[in-house]
């Protein structure tokens, strides 16, 4: 029996356990999951040719489309992965669309859908799990995938007036053989900085590549993005993001020989709501 009795055994064990307890970095879990309200104006210009180079007649009805979208989106902490990345449940609240800014508004099937966004604290997105529930008509989650960047931008730490480059990647996987990887390379400038908030502007280019094996298609994405982000200093949370993004999705259908190009233009904002989502 050691001189300290049972304490002689327990003290070293206590310190070992204490060390284990300190191993995972504390997770900054907000008291209540944040909610952002968003409003977007979208227009889509589509053109395509068949294998003979002739315009695709079936596309004629869809060459010019416009829609307005509004809704809410929340983000709740779910778990930490072994590589120290984190899982967040991103859930759409009621999402409505309209053919014009005046309406009439109708509920879209994106309402109530959720994905697990796996990423790092700095905003880098590694994976979206459950994205197949958002994809395809009439949900178009793969077209609107920029909303995940919209609420989770990769923002550099800059002093007022400073500029810096950041690259943000995000994938959208419907299945292993149906995936798209997009990147935003942007130059950020800190426009204002106070102890409470930082206002940053960005401008950059969009790039991406993907494949859709069941459709025998490959995709190439290009475009430009600009916007302004207001970050809260206290908890590094995003207060507001206004954006103007244009991307061109060029799809090459090897099976039919058709080639389609769609210009997707989005203007709008994400604004942190005073109303929080239920934990």
């Amino acid at each position: 029996m050691p001189p300290l009795g049972h304490l002689g055994y327990m003290l070293p064990m206590f310190f070992v356990l204490l060390a284990c307890a300190a191993t995972p970095a504390p997770v900054a879990v907000p008291e209540a999951p944040p909610v952002w309200r968003f409003e977007l104006a979208a227009d889509y210009q589509t053109e395509g040719v068949d294998a003979a180079g002739e315009p695709i007649a079936a596309l004629a009805a869809y060459t010019e489309q416009q829609e307005w979208l509004r809704g809410s989106i929340s983000r709740s902490y779910a778990r930490r992965y072994q590589d120290d990345s984190q899982g967040w449940v991103v859930r759409f609240g009621l999402v409505e669309s309209a053919p014009s800014a005046e309406g009439p508004w109708s509920r879209t099937e994106l309402s109530g859908k959720s994905v697990e966004l796996r990423g790092f604290d700095n905003g880098e997105v590694l994976a979206l799990r459950g994205a197949e529930h958002l994809a395809g008509a009439p949900r178009y989650g793969e077209v609107l995938d920029f909303v995940f960047v919209g609420i989770s931008p990769t923002v550099p730490d800059l002093k007022e007036g400073e500029s810096g480059w950041r690259r943000q990647n995000w994938p959208f996987l419907v299945a292993k053989q149906r995936r798209m990887h997009s990147t935003l390379h942007a130059e950020w400038t800190a426009l204002e900085r106070s102890p409470q908030r930082v206002v940053l502007g960005y401008q950059g280019k969009l790039e991406g590549r993907g494949l859709d094996t069941p459709a025998q298609a490959t995709m190439v994405l290009s475009g430009q993005a600009q916007g302004q982000v207001v970050m809260r200093v206290a908890d590094a949370s995003m207060e507001k993001h206004t954006l103007d993004w244009t991307r061109v999705m060029a799809v090459d259908y090897q099976g039919s020989g058709a080639k389609v190009s769609q210009r997707q233009h989005f203007v709008g904002s994400f604004q942190r709501s005073a109303q929080e989502a239920s934990p």
């Binding site: 589509t46 869809y62 993907g210 859709d212 459709a215 999705m249 389609v260």
Partner: peptide
């Protein structure tokens, strides 16, 4: 889930 990546109806 048929046509992906383009905002086109079913």
């Amino acid at each position: 889930i048929e046509l992906l990546w383009l905002r086109l109806p079913a």
